[in-house]
Every structure is written in C-alpha cells, then in structure tokens.
Design a protein around this nucleic acid. Structure first.
Lengths: 245, 245
DNA sequence: TTTTATTGTCTTAAATTTAGACAATAAATA
DNA sequence: TATTTATTGTCTAAATTTAAGACAATAAAA
C-alpha cells in the first residue's frame, strides 16, 4: 500500500466512507472505485482523518480528490460501529491474490496490522452534478465509475449496507432540505425535476400537482423556453434562485 | 482518575456522549452528573468503546450504568468531530484546582495524555421514564441530577452544544417515530401527552385537534377512568398498545 | 342544588391535496 | 398549408386533511 497510513498522522480505527450520488438518464448513480489489485474489489471512496483536521473537512478532501469539485453538498448521516466491523476477511483475500504485497512490507507488516483493526466509520453522502465531475482515480484505484444504484457491484466489508442507509436518509431529508437540485445541472426543465424525484423515490408523481408543489417552494426562477427539437411545446428552463434574492 | 482508561482496551480518541431526556412537571429534563473534583465541572454521561463492543452496546452500557434501566430508547444522532475538540482546557483547569491528581499519576502521566488528545464523540440521545430511573453516580461523579433543559449548567467542552443538537433531532423525529411515549409512565392521560408535546416543541397545541391526531395514530389503548380528586370530569387513562396486537 | 373546571366529542370552516380537464405549442404528417 | 400528435402550462372541481368553535358530560366544590 502506498502512502502508508500507519505512518501518516491519522486518527486510528476511525474512517470515513462516502456515498457520492449522481443522476443521469433517469438513474440514480453512485461513484465507486475499483481497487488496483488482482481480484475484483470495489470499495466506496473513503479515507482517514488527520489529527488536525475537522471530520467535515476530511470528508470534503476525500470527495474533492475523487470528483474534482470544491463546493459539494455533503451530509454526515450515520456511524457504522459494529465490533466485528473490520477488513480482515478482505485483507486476507487481497493478500492471497496479491502475494507480492507481503514481501513489499516484510510479511504482515505495520500496514496489515493497521488496516485489519476494527474501524468505526463515519458515513457521508454527497450530491453532485454528474456532468461536472471528472472521476479521478487515486493510486489505489484501477478504475472509478458511476454505477446505477440498483446494479452496484458487491463491495468490501459493509459498503453495500452503507449505500442502502444513505439512500434511506436521502429520501428522508429530500423535502425537508431542498437538496435534490444539487443533483441537476444549473438549468433544467420541470420534467427533469420530476423524473429525478421519481427516480429517487422509485415511484411516480402526478405531473400537474408535482409542478405546483415544486414551484410553491419558491426556490426556482424561470428562464427562457428550451427548444429541444421535439414535437411538442417547448418547456421552460428553471434555475435555483440565487440565495441573495 | 480511577480505572485508568488508557489501560483499558478502548478505542482511542473516540468517545460517546449521551443526552438522557426525561420529563417531569411539564419540564423536559436532562440527566447530568457533576464531577467529583474541586471546581464545578458538569459533563454529560459518557464513556469509551471497548475493542470488542458495538458502539450501540457501549451506549447502552453507559446509559444502564447511570439510569439502571435495561431496555432504553436510544438514537445515535450526530458525530462531533472538530479538530479542536479536546479537553485540554478543561484538564488544565482541573489539575490547577486538583493538584493532587498530578502526584497520583506521576506528573502528566499516561492518563493526562490519554484524556487531552482530540476526541471524536458519537452523540446518542435516550428517552426514559424519569420515574423509573434511579440516577446512579459513577466513582467520578459527586452528584447526578435532572436539570431542566432550559437551566442546564455550563458543561465541559462542547456538551451544551451536544444537548442543543439532540433536542433539534428529537423534535425532528418525534412525529415520524412515535417515540414521545418513552418519556411517559406506562399509563397517562391525554392531557399528559399534550403537555409533553407542548414542552418539547415549546408551543401550545389545540386540545380538540391534538387529541384527535394522537388517537388517529392508533397506537394507544384506552383504559379505565382516572379519579384524580379534581373538581372535574375524570379523564381516561391510556397506554401504548402492545406490539403484538 | 348550583357552580366551576375540565374532558370527550361533534360540527363547521378553512386550507391543502388529489384528480381531471383543456388550451397552447412545436414538430411531424398528410 | 392544414391537420395530427405529443408534451407542457394552467385551470377547476372534488376529496381529504387541518384548524377552529361549540357544547354536553362529569366530578367535586360552593
């Protein structure tokens, strides 16, 4: 493992795992890197917390690293802290398939020890405009891609459960916090908004009333019409009102 | 400090702080111990997590210790993780007022080191029937008492903020989760319920409609009337339906 | 017996949500 | 060029929920 975390000034046994939500083509997506080792290992973007770093800052750092985006909507949603929560099973399989790791570190070195301890993990979820993200691999990743949340690969440890819990929380907070627009580009049609909500909640809404509900929130401003080339009336474009107004 | 935590098998730099809510006399109360040292130090009931202990179990243990109650409503509500979150200020003041602590541990010993590191703290809130609780001191406490949430003493570190955040979360989850009844005795009148809600939200509700709303939840069963000796019609007693029904 | 304070419940009004309907529009088709 | 088609914006009416008012029933005090 490069940049040995055991030698960085990190808080031990405490980690951050991020569920980065994006939206494209009527699908809710999650950004998931695949690890750069033999064997098919997927893991949520995550990391550790420096001694002199707020946990929110650490989460931001991790997200910025993978997405390139600076200002990002971020919410700490749950802590995962079962006693049995460790990556021993994963690490053993990893080493089995990548024996070169052992020799690098002089068999079962500090790093193995560091990684296989129990970790308490802080779950954050982020909402980003998928089109603005240029997914960036770290040197531990062989690839990083957007996966439909319904077709996620099997990830290490409890990362699939973390996504499930993140989606639950997102649904619970969506109306309260008006955060859905973070998943859309700067301008969008009312239909875009409706499809996004339908995707997140996985159920249909009545068009007429949905539009009224969203407009009554009074957070959108209407722009010009959008000439799509489709055989129908051109829809208006909307944009979030600037907070100053 | 007794039972030196640095020598227990705890996760380092990770703690639990509990906001234990009770209700009495139209007041929302929080159970707060006062520390058994020179100087007036109050701190939320808290503790650390053993290596082989789920965080939820640890929170339960801490709560059971102070309240004597086994089955307790408990919710992990937020993590407090600022980089500057440590008890250095508190510890220095503590030692200034209690110089005997230094000699005990051979000046600035392991324990001082352990306690003054940055801690990330997991906030839990608990809802209990105040009448069932027999507040129990640990050997670190000189007293432990119920304080009106509006008249809390100034506590160490960020514990007052933790209470504020806990109350926010409680309000947010109250209707969703039907958890308010955890604060009441087994049987209660409709007026009790209304006063409880009014206390938590710090605002009045209309009696007729409130009663309808609560009964429409369909989670209460009506018992016999309660002869209070008051100069009026006797109110019915209610009780939470058993979950089997 | 009358008065007083509180409880349980009903009725009505107001507000909100849900469902249905239709004109306006832009491109495709005839 | 006129008509058809698909979709959007908006209006109206019905259904439901919430809020407000009213009053009889009750138990003890006067």
């Amino acid at each position: 493992m490069l940049r040995n975390p055991s030698e960085q000034n990190y808080i031990e046994q405490l980690s951050i795992d991020c569920v980065i939500f994006g939206y494209h083509n009527k699908q809710l997506k999650v950004l998931v890197p695949k690890l750069n080792f033999n064997g098919d290992f997927w893991a949520l973007p995550g990391g550790f917390i420096s001694q002199d770093e707020d946990i929110d800052i650490a989460a931001n750092r991790i997200l910025q690293q993978r997405t390139g985006i600076k200002e990002i909507y971020l919410d700490q949603f749950h802590i995962f802290g079962k006693a049995a929560r460790n990556s021993l099973k994963f690490m053993n399989k990893l080493i089995e398939l990548n024996p070169q790791l052992l020799s690098e570190n002089g068999q079962h070195g500090k790093e193995f020890n560091w990684f296989t301890k129990r970790f308490v993990s802080i779950g954050y979820y982020a909402l980003v405009d998928l089109n603005q993200v240029v997914p960036e691999k770290t040197d531990l990743d062989s690839s990083i891609d957007w996966y439909n949340i319904k077709e996620l690969p099997e990830m290490i440890i409890d990362h699939n459960e973390i996504v499930t819990k993140a989606l639950e929380t997102l649904r619970f907070h969506l109306d309260e916090k008006l955060i859905a627009f973070n998943l859309l580009p700067e301008t969008f049609t009312m239909k875009d908004v409706q499809e996004l909500y339908e995707t997140i909640y996985d159920k249909p809404f009545a068009r007429n009333n949905f539009q009224k509900k969203i407009l009554d929130l009074n957070v959108l401003e209407r722009l010009e019409k959008k000439f799509t080339g489709a055989a129908n009336k051109a829809p208006y474009l909307y944009r979030r009102k600037s907070l100053g107004a």
